[in-house]
Design a protein around this nucleic acid. Structure first.
Lengths: 182, 182
DNA sequence: TGCGAAACTAAGCAAGCGCTTAGTCACCGT
DNA sequence: ACGGTGACTAAGCGCTTGCTTAGTTTCGCA
């Protein structure tokens, strides 16, 4: 799965051959099929585990914070940091999920909606309490997720900033986006 | 080229066959090779034209505005709107450029850097004039571009908002990000 | 009207694809 | 010592891929 994640993240699902995955894992081409029934099944496992991991991180960040302001800052920081630290899996999660079969795609879409719902919940709470100033909750949550998700597109282990620093920066920017003082 | 753009945007470069492109254009498989030497050449033409189109839009938006505040708002609005209206080409531009040959890749990377430089220039001017409050110009320009570029990922012609509305919303959010009042 | 060039197609080639089959090997409880 | 189980491979099958070749049609222009 590690070899598949690396290859899918690097070249994309369709450009990756089962022989790439096998040799990356130190196996013969047939060795992969002892553990996985198909290349798509491998993608699905990676995609599902990745989505579940991200959702878990996001939920625990929100649970550990008291106010909507702190919750939003921690969520964006954690989510951004996850997209940097796990950037290979994150790229699979963000860019390859539409190559899944319709059934598998529906399953990960449900997980994506749960992440979305967490963000909207915080924005609604913050608006209700009057600490956020937001025009439209849908548009704003989309922009917040864009900033975090896009980390997977440009992150590289060789850049100046560490994943933790990226998280901190994005959390700061997120609070600005919702009109909350940091 | 239209058929190729649609297919590349929909399924990705490697998942698209030359037969897909040919039938999308109403040609036989060999008919494509009258006009293009290879599938990669088609991708390069699309990618180059797309990048040039985006850069042109961005530059004219900046040229037509007087203050850094207005320039940033117009740039983000125009760039976001472009990613919605031309979302098929935009997806090719954003997600397929790493399937180009090294030489072609370098050529579009140069165009990407020019777009980047325009954004940084505005942020520097606004900071110099004291109308923007920014921690780090590199981090902030990256976040601004993330919001605009990510439009190509989630946009669909069937959604509620029009490209122009998306542009207006993102321009408003951009000004918040740099600490400028709108 | 006739001609050269450009646009196009039918057929297919070599290579690479996802995946299967048949069989070998290492290991573990009895 | 041994039989069963799971991990693994060599070989390769049927199919699709990007692209080519040889030949036909269309078209602008003299």
């Amino acid at each position: 799965m590690q070899a598949a994640a690396r290859a899918f993240a690097d070249k994309g699902f369709h450009a990756t051959t089962t022989r790439d995955i096998a040799s990356g894992a130190g196996l013969s081409p047939a060795g992969v099929y002892v553990h996985f029934g198909s290349k798509e099944e491998l993608l699905f496992n990676l995609s599902r585990i990745g989505h579940e991991s991200a959702l878990r991180e996001v939920r625990s960040a929100v649970a550990d914070a008291a106010t909507p302001t702190q919750q939003l800052a921690d969520l964006v920081a954690t989510f951004s940091q996850w997209h940097a630290e796990q950037y290979e899996i994150a790229r699979v999660v963000q860019y390859e999920h539409h190559h899944l079969t319709p059934e598998h795609h529906a399953e990960v879409l449900a997980l994506r909606k749960q992440i979305d719902a967490v963000v909207r919940g915080i924005l609604e709470a913050g608006t209700r309490e009057g600490v956020f100033t937001i025009d439209d909750i849908g548009d704003t949550s989309l922009a917040l997720l864009s900033i975090a998700v896009d980390v997977a597109r440009w992150y590289s282990p060789t850049i100046r900033r560490t994943p933790a620093q990226i998280g901190a920066t994005n959390a700061h920017l997120a609070l600005r986006l919702v009109g909350a003082s940091s």
